[in-house]
Write a protein that binds this DNA or RNA. Structure first.
Lengths: 258, 258
DNA sequence: CAATACTATTTATACTAATAAATAGATTAA
DNA sequence: TTAATCTATTTATTAGTATAAATAGTATTG
């Protein structure tokens, strides 16, 4: 009774065996995204098992993002590159019970963003620079409605996501994007109740403008340095904001009689 | 025919609907690991669907690492914290087609390890320090067999994994552990063919010894600095090693007549 | 001739029912 | 008291059937 977790299952489930077999087969044959797996009937014959078992195996592969399943002629399971959204969602499950705090997220962000900026600098196309400029433009007008305010925060984050996608290091790209996604959710679900942080928005805008200039000049060192300052600034504002948030909720509690 | 990927599925699958419902239910009720989900029969009634559909939904949750499923009385789906191994495996799927290179992995490692060391410094218990010392001891004798060599490389990496687990930042901890896992696989599957890199091993040992001294002295800044030098050194050796590896394989190819 | 609608086929999706395997807890025997 | 055995519960797997979705190919229409 005391520790059920370290129980080793006597027999691995048939469906999991099939999943592993298929994975091995895909790796060995160097199969590429878009190629088809055998259909359910063939898999049933191949592994000598029933429809339900095959379906569970395919479901597992689908959840892992390795295949997508379609009906109709030439349907069935098709090999896919795991989409970012899938990997991101699965990593979030892992963090569900840890609930990283704002400062924790910003600690990581401060580490990775400067390097991402430096790595992306020589790799940005003219279209990328134009896109970054457009994102900055979206933040240059004073927001009037709540929706505009949120849109500007999103645009700020997309600036960073674009850099991450261009940094040329798949793992750094993933982490950069993931961190910005976490912040996006934080902004939307926790910070949206607070009034506009004009100082914060203006500081961000300034940094993004300076960054764009450095990126256009292909000056990776400046980009790294500016991004570091930007992150330190954002980290600072976040800390202030969290303080206000606490005050906010404390005030609410004080308002409840009894 | 040209782009099947951007097709949007008309109807979400019943099993996926159930997965989402269960997730919402878990989040709303603030359910904790160890708590039980309703069994298959109850879920069938709850969602008015067949056994197979419930099983697919449970399979999905299981693959995501959110529940473990047991047979027998009081069996069924039990809520779990997603184990690191699960999250790690799923992220690897994402990177399967990207195949991060040695230099890419080391670029990330150089970023995160110094900060991990600094954060872990004030949090290490005496047991942790003893464990780190034991890992160092494992590397102090000259390896005689292949197995010993590999064991020492593993011990080196476990030194870093332990620090990562103690850094107090769930995301940094995950990344640190993940990066070391990637290096472990690289060592085992790619680098094991090469002769011992005595200079490399000695350098690592020296750095780990100095690091342990700094950690014992609770000197976070020194730990950070030492770890940075350690990573730069390791990065350098890795680059040399990759060069040798290429030579190695070039040599092999030259050996093939014709 | 090109665009549209129809149709046959392929395939996944969902359901039912029955048996096999695993196991926690109760019972029994040494 | 301890160890072995039984039993009830629950998942795991199988088999078979029926339905719904997707699509390639064909026929029809403007």
């Amino acid at each position: 009774m005391n520790d059920k977790n370290l129980r080793i299952p006597k027999r691995v489930k048939r469906s999991d065996q099939i999943v592993e077999s298929v994975k091995r087969w895909v790796a060995l044959n160097r199969m590429q995204p878009g190629e088809r797996l055998p259909n359910e009937r063939e898999l049933m014959e191949q592994f000598e098992c029933s429809k339900g078992t095959v379906r569970e195996a395919l479901k597992s592969l689908e959840v892992q993002g390795l295949v997508s399943i379609r009906t109709g002629p030439n349907g069935g399971a098709i090999l896919e590159r795991v989409p970012y959204e899938k990997a991101s969602a699965l990593l979030r499950n892992f963090l569900h019970f840890e609930q990283p705090s704002g400062p924790e997220i910003y600690a990581l962000r401060t580490l990775v963003e400067p390097e991402i900026a430096a790595l992306a600098t020589p790799r940005l196309t003219d279209e990328d620079l134009a896109a970054l400029n457009a994102l900055i433009k979206r933040c240059e007008v004073a927001p009037e409605t709540f929706e505009e305010r949120m849109d500007q925060r999103i645009a700020e984050l997309e600036f960073h996501v674009l850099l991450a996608q261009r940094c040329g290091n798949a793992m750094l790209a993933f982490i950069g994007r993931f961190v910005n996604d976490m912040i996006r959710d934080m902004v939307i679900f926790k910070k949206s109740a607070l009034p506009e942080q004009r100082e914060f928005s203006c500081a961000n805008l300034k940094y993004h403008q300076k960054l764009l200039a450095a990126l256009k000049a292909r000056d990776a060192d400046s980009a790294r340095q500016l991004m570091h300052e930007h992150m330190k600034s954002a980290e600072h504002f976040n800390r202030e904001l969290e303080g206000q948030l606490n005050q906010h909720f404390l005030g609410m509690n004080r308002g409840i009689p009894g």
